[in-house]
Simulated assay, not measured.
Amino acid sequence: MSIYLDHAATTPIDPRVKEAMDPYLIDAFGNPSSIHTYGRDVRAAIDAARETIARSIHATDPSEIVFTSGGTEADNMALRGVMVEARSSGKKHLITSQIEHHAILDTCEYLEKLGFEITYVPVDSSGLVHLQDIQNAIRPDTALISIMFGNNEIGTLQPVREIGELARERGILFHVDAVQALGLEEMDVSDLQVDLMSISAHKICGPKGIGALYVHKKVKMMPQMFGGYQERRRRAGTENVPGIIGFAKAVALRIQERERYREHLKQLRRELFRALKVKQIDFVQNGHGEQSLLHIVNLSFPGIDSETLLMNLDIAGIAVSSGSACTSGTIHKSHVIEALQVGEERVDSAIRFSFGQSNTIKEILYVVDILRDTIQRLSKT
């Protein structure tokens, strides 16, 4: 049996999304910047897709949606675009958290090399950012606050609305990385007082290589790509038309089916925790127990190395991810779980399970059985 429980990394394309994309891979091939019929037809499809995505986050103007190659580019565009533009008015300070995605943290590191100053606020043991810490970090030259909607490793949901209110009161722009939360959590950028929001298609059964950045019309930002009039000069380059069509279809389906999907995820979560307790598996949950994205469960198994467990589960046909990543042969511990300050043992034994629409309770029960047998075997070695 092969079981995929790594949907926070990526998801399979929904067949209905592929069906919507197919005509734009062969027949509707025109360049949307062309003024002839071939181009105008494709431009109309892009406009309709932009409206669908704007509605999903309650953006009032579809032109506030800027298509990108994915969430990473959207994060880069938000931070670099805003900060470079803000420097002309004497603002050079940005506030973010210690548990952001590396698309944010690595961009911040780059900005620091350019002379910008970054404050990385801490989180508590459940992964929550505290509003007071952000308030204490604000300076007269703070241009931007960037906090993710829900964490990609532990699932903890942040107090986005409260941060948005604080940022608006202080005249500071607010960016939210909502890649993991799109289609799961209700999002209204006006109500949340969000100025910029990053989203991506491949986390919601859409295609890879396409995402978007919501940019409120009042936001001034320096473009990061030049050479064309596309995306109102904010992101030059011929549009990824099939990707955009697929993105919009995936968004429409997820919004339409969201409540049913959320209930499905709740059932999977409940069954996972129930089965772990029935099988008497020793574990500790990382992240917030209640205020969390429904599809992400991060657990530490004391005394068990996460990389070893991950490889054994993979051999058994179970795809999950660990709290660490392997790059160029070097093991890097999860910066997210380290930031929780819960001890090295939990950092070293963390595994992330992330559910999707195709997973079943039967699969969860099978995974727990394999998990029990694997942990028992590893404990004896």
Results as ranks from 00 to 15, higher is better:
Gln98Trp: 01
Leu128Ile: 10
Met148Glu: 03
Lys380Val: 01
Gly39Leu: 12
Pro62Val: 01
Ser69Asn: 12
Phe247His: 04
Val82Tyr: 15
Leu173Ala: 05
Leu79Thr: 02
Thr119Phe: 01
Glu239Val: 05
Lys203Cys: 05
Gly206Met: 06
Leu79Lys: 04
Leu313Lys: 08
Tyr214Ser: 01
Leu157Met: 08
Thr142Gln: 08
Phe174Val: 04
Tyr4Ile: 09
Ala9Ser: 14
Ala137Tyr: 14
Glu73Gly: 02
His295Asp: 07
Pro207Ile: 03
Thr238Pro: 09
Ala248Ser: 14
Phe247Gln: 00
Ala252Ser: 11
Asp41Pro: 02
Arg258Met: 06
Arg254Leu: 13
Tyr24Leu: 10
Phe174Tyr: 15
Asn76Glu: 10
Phe149Asn: 00
Glu257Asn: 14
Pro32Thr: 02
Phe174Leu: 08
Ser56Val: 06
Leu105Phe: 07
Asn76Thr: 02
Ala212Gly: 05
Gly227Arg: 09
Ala137Asn: 11
His202Ser: 04
Arg269His: 14
His58Thr: 00
Leu299Tyr: 03
Ser379His: 05
Thr142Glu: 06
Ala339Thr: 04
Pro62Gln: 04
Ala20His: 11
Gly237Asn: 04
Ala325Val: 10
Thr360Ser: 14
Glu186Asn: 10
Ile147Trp: 13
Val297Asn: 14
Tyr38Pro: 11
Cys326Leu: 11
Ile331Met: 11
Leu365Pro: 05
Leu144Gly: 08
Ile13Gly: 00
Thr327Leu: 14
Cys108Tyr: 13
His264Gln: 06
Ala250Phe: 12
Leu5Lys: 06
Leu166Gly: 12
Lys333Gly: 09
Ser2Cys: 00
Phe29Tyr: 14
Ile53His: 11
Ala339Val: 03
Gln98Met: 01
Ala9Asp: 05
Glu231Lys: 03
Val123Thr: 01
Val129Tyr: 11
Val297Trp: 11
Leu196Gly: 11
Asp61Ile: 02
Leu111Ser: 10
Val82Gly: 13
Ala86Met: 07
Arg232Val: 00
Glu73Met: 10
Lys92Ala: 08
His93Asp: 12
Thr37Gln: 15
Gly287His: 02
Leu371Phe: 09
Arg254Val: 03
Met21Gly: 05
Ser322Asp: 06
